[in-house]
């Protein structure tokens, strides 16, 4: 399921970039000629770019929600909150899909686009938090895998140092947590 979603994200990204280029061309032609024909083309192209942008973001949030569920098992309150908020965002973006289908003028497209972009900006914090939770869950999984080696190791100053590093993993940001985990694992493997 997840690989399919990731492949779909790649296609949707290409669709968005193509429709954005077509929109820019149509917008320039409309601004230059101001004819009914160029206006209708601009409306058509703006509808397409609004839809492709929404589709890409929607699929990304679905992938993120699925990854969060599979990698963290939604085991604590912050993860549960992220999951539910992602679900709300997905529902909101699904509503935008029908809004964009009904666009019949540039001013209407402006309103929908502004509303979508406001929502998108607010979603960035949620996306960043969720990504951190996923990475930290993956690091915690590694930490759990190291536990039996610590239990089996003979007491030594090297073991103490590895344990000290592992204690700091959960409270550190992902890149530092990763480094601490790697240091501890290397110490255990000495």
């Amino acid at each position: 399921m997840l690989p399919l979603l990731i492949a779909s994200l790649f296609t949707l990204g290409s669709d968005y970039r193509a429709s954005y280029q077509q929109y820019l061309l149509a917008r320039n032609q409309y601004q230059q000629y101001q004819t009914e024909s160029t206006r209708l083309t601009a409306i058509d192209k703006v509808k397409r770019v609004l839809k492709s942008r929404n589709d890409w973001q929607l699929e990304y949030l679905k992938t993120l929600r699925l990854t969060l569920a599979s990698d963290t098992s939604i085991a604590n309150y912050p993860q549960t909150t992220s999951y539910l908020t992602l679900e709300d965002e997905i529902i909101a973006l699904e509503r935008f899909t029908s809004d964009f289908n009904s666009v019949s003028s540039l001013s209407q497209a402006q309103n929908f686009s502004r509303s979508w972009e406001d929502r998108y900006s607010r979603t960035q914090t949620l996306v960043s938090q969720t990504r951190n939770q996923i990475i930290k869950a993956r690091l915690a999984n590694f930490q759990n895998q190291l536990a039996p080696y610590i239990d089996a190791a003979s007491p030594s100053s090297t073991l103490d140092l590895a344990i000290q590093k592992l204690k700091l993993v959960s409270s550190s940001e992902p890149s530092l947590a990763h480094q601490l985990l790697l240091d501890a694992a290397k110490l255990l493997a000495l």
Binding site: G13, Y16, V46, T67, Y120, Q124, F142, P174, L181
Partner: peptide, 26 residues
């Protein structure tokens, strides 16, 4: 496995959009 682990997993990278769209007025 820990050494090759990436904290910036590319599959989690969010889409990037040209915002705002700057839709012209009629």
């Amino acid at each position: 496995q820990i050494a090759v682990f990436k904290t910036n997993d590319s599959t989690l990278t969010p889409p990037s959009f040209d915002i705002p769209l700057q839709i012209p007025s009629e």
